[in-house]
Amino acid sequence: MGDQLMTWLLAIFQTLLFVALAPLLAGWLKWCKCHLQNRQAPSLLQPYRDLLKLTRKQPVVAEHASWIFTRAPYIIFSAIVLAASIVPLIAVDLPTAAIADVIVLVGFFAFARFFLALAGLDIGTAFGGMGSSREMTISSIAEPAMLMAIFTLTMTASTTNLSFAIIHVLNEGLVLRPSFVFALFALMLVAIAETGRIPVDNPDTHLELTMIHEAMILEYSGRHLALIEWASQVKLMLYGVLIANIFFPWGIAQSFSVQALAHGLLAIIGKLAVLAILLSISETLLAKMRLFRVQEYLSFAYLLGLLGMLSHIILEASR
């Protein structure tokens, strides 16, 4: 009983850590990007300051906004926090991982997106509708690509539970699987699209015609904006952790000793830092695509996922 309580506490601690570290990742990403672009970087803690400031402000809400608009930030935030709770960050085999598997994880993202898109439509301006329409379009092509990549993994590990899948990859040792290489690239492309980074969407722009995510949340302010910003930072980190821990799980804690956990924490911080550097390099090198090129980009991601799946079936199947 005591053991179980410990693991549950650890799971809650891991979730809180996840949510707390997300702004730091965003800060680090910005820092890298600024340095690459010869700009002066804000402090790594700037995202925390922004969030804190926003929570202290009184929110301004559009006249026609309904309860959907004012409640959506809380719904989005809790869906994303719940998604964070089931993804192994520093340790595997935690009890929360069993609450939901990777398909439910995709479901949580869909849940958050559904309300974000509704909130965009709620105020009745063209921006909101534009953002919602584009977001739903991109996500509906990205979702099959993402699931294709995930299916490759789950079929290799024959489980959809993330924790067990990671343990499976760890036990296999370092094997170069062609299917995993394809799946990794597919998931990276999807992650860029789903978290609204360049070349699909530009998180720094407020140019009307190119916005996607920003267009939907244009009317948000104060604590509502803080929640949504924070949720999208957690979402970015979620994709990072998924990529890091599924494909490069070494270092994650398999036992709950303090040493192993500390080791796991350091490992994930290192992996995320490297991923962020890669992302900032690609964001510096690439320009934003036209909206209707995004489908080609995502079809390519889908194709990679499909190739991964087929190479699993043809080359690696156990029989």
């Binding site: 009184q58 929110p59 301004v60 809400v61 006249e63 105020i123 301006t125």
Partner: peptide, 12 residues
């Protein structure tokens, strides 16, 4: 102080 929301017209 900030619990109540201020209503204003949408950005046009």
């Amino acid at each position: 102080e900030t619990k109540t929301m201020r209503r204003a017209s949408a950005w046009d």
